[in-house]
Design a binder for these strands. Structure first.
Lengths: 115, 115
DNA sequence: GATTATATGTAGGTAATCTACCTATGTCAA
DNA sequence: TTGACATAGGTAGATTACCTACATATAATC
């Protein structure tokens, strides 16, 4: 059926930017935190996230830098740029308008008897 | 940028089924009503809707029948089936869970100071 | 007579996400 | 000590949803 995956469509960028707004994160951490904060609804796949991050970096929405973890493991951290913050605001506005419009259609027939 | 089109992604089927739940409609009418009820946020393209309707009919989610309009024009009406109603309920549940999860991520940092 | 609205449709393209794979290190249990 | 699992980053190719652009035809309007 492959219906579950597509409901996410178009909003992954917004969610990732939103997480990076609170603090700098590395890829694996983004996947974990998104899963936690969404109460296990979102489980980003690496094949989704890493190309997405590379694209955001190419477009100047995020910067990246390497940092060593406690255990000598190197992590690639991403930081939101001013441009990225602008994109986030735009996407959040679109999200608000979109959900409002969907709910107008869904609530039709329940709220209004004379539609 | 092509960002506006993708925010719709995955939910067009739900919206179309929802409209057909209220009454039987023909394709052109679905486009008009969806535009009206969403306050002009959704403008389905014929290249999106007609193939979608054909797919729903193939899957037994809707039935179709021809009917003459006042002006002798033939319209192809679509009617929601029991199976289609089941799909609609499933999609509405997914939508509710999905928007709730997105809002959990978006509200983070505003509601909770100690995240 | 020309344009616009109504009405249905197809072909081909793009973009977002997925599946499925690869590499590599750290940790823990058998 | 080896095997499994978690951590960490990555790519190639497929799938899917929706779009653009086109084609067809009738009715209404200018």
């Amino acid at each position: 059926m492959a219906s579950e995956k597509n409901i996410i469509s178009g909003n992954t960028t917004m969610l990732v930017l939103k997480l990076l707004e609170t603090k700098n994160m590395y890829g694996y951490q983004i996947i974990e935190e998104l899963s936690n904060k969404s109460e296990d609804v979102f489980h980003l796949k690496t094949g989704t996230l890493y190309p997405l991050l590379h694209g955001l970096e190419n477009d100047g929405m995020v910067n990246s830098y390497d940092e060593n973890a406690d255990n000598q493991r190197v992590r690639k951290y991403y930081q939101l740029t001013g441009k990225g913050k602008g994109l986030l605001e735009k996407k959040q506005l679109e999200w608000t308008q979109y959900t409002k419009a969907v709910n107008l259609v869904l609530e039709e027939g329940e709220s209004y008897a004379f539609a």
